[in-house]
Design a protein around this nucleic acid. Sequence first.
DNA 1: GAAAACATGTAACCGGTTACATGATTCT
DNA 2: AGAATCATGTAACCGGTTACATGTTTTC
Lengths: 197, 197
Amino acid sequence: MSLRYALLALLTAQPMTGYDVAKTFHSSVGHVWHAPDSQIYPELKRMELDGLIRGEDIARTSRAGNATKRLYGITEAGVAAFRQWMSVPTEYSAERNPAHLRAAYFEWADAASVRAQLLAHIEHWTEMREQWVGQLSSFADRSHPIFQKRLEISPPSEWPRITAWKMFAYEGLIAQADQQIAWAKKGLALEASLDNG
Amino acid sequence: MSLRYALLALLTAQPMTGYDVAKTFHSSVGHVWHAPDSQIYPELKRMELDGLIRGEDIARTSRAGNATKRLYGITEAGVAAFRQWMSVPTEYSAERNPAHLRAAYFEWADAASVRAQLLAHIEHWTEMREQWVGQLSSFADRSHPIFQKRLEISPPSEWPRITAWKMFAYEGLIAQADQQIAWAKKGLALEASLDNG
DNA sequence: GAAAACATGTAACCGGTTACATGATTCT
DNA sequence: AGAATCATGTAACCGGTTACATGTTTTC
């Protein structure tokens, strides 16, 4: 159910068409809560039915053609629902960790597989880390369009608060990635010692 | 699809009834890959149909009564499938992180809610940490029944390998919990500074 | 004229969640 | 006799995944 609120979060910055929601989603909230386009479009429809957002058909082209696109804006009910969601405690889902599951039984894999898995783990978390670092620096240098827009529509007195939490969230994700990378490196060392020692 | 392999992992130690699988699951692999009983029983049936495990009806009671229970043992095909799975690279699912999603928008929550969320985060990961530490010490002092059984059926030359990977996996989870707790504590400090400073 | 980007989905499937259902055996 | 624990599920639902479908407008 978080997708709905991730979308609301995005739409608190500015009204957008479904296409723009999807696109900016992938380069903002999507780094924390992934969703494919095929989930975003239907969810927007449902959110409109539930009154959280309001859709308006607007012309898709400047001159000829009669195609339209739908511009979604958050409603007061949507803002209220988002605020409400922000104040209720997070539900933690039960642990389900494929990498650690495998690692616990690495004695069943040969040395090459173990190394490959650990290297893939490092690669995966390095990529994640890069994405998050990229987000973080685009907050810092104000090159992040949605974040920029968010600041523009907020009173300057709120800027430190908005910025601080955003950085806090992404720094946490980066620390998480660092920890995963460090763990996998320890695993590579362990593999080497089991192999030779 | 990992549940299937988590169950196979468990059954490499010894044959068990569905009930025992479910019970020991919750106090072993279940700490890395959670599943409710309602998922375990049907999956065992499917695994038997697929020839990964073999089920045998045995008497449930020593004397009177004619009730039976089903004892499942891993087959050669099951062992092969498990080994195969251990050698293919892990698939990483896209990031979906409810706590960090919220944190990125904490400016929408009041101070009390923020504090409550962060404290709940600390509580959650402290509980997880305790579970994992418990597992780890039960490997160390040989009080973990499944782990003990696993060593018994393995040649002593394999014991260091088996033990080392198990500890590696759980130490990684503990480090993860520590990192989450540290992050939330930084959040509490940040909240205080935004509030007063 | 073709390719890229805009724009919006549907359908089938699958794994996981939640709630409920039922009966047998053993222990006190 | 009643409680605990053994023993095994079913059914409805729901969110997410994967693959596919289709047409328009803009840009080169």
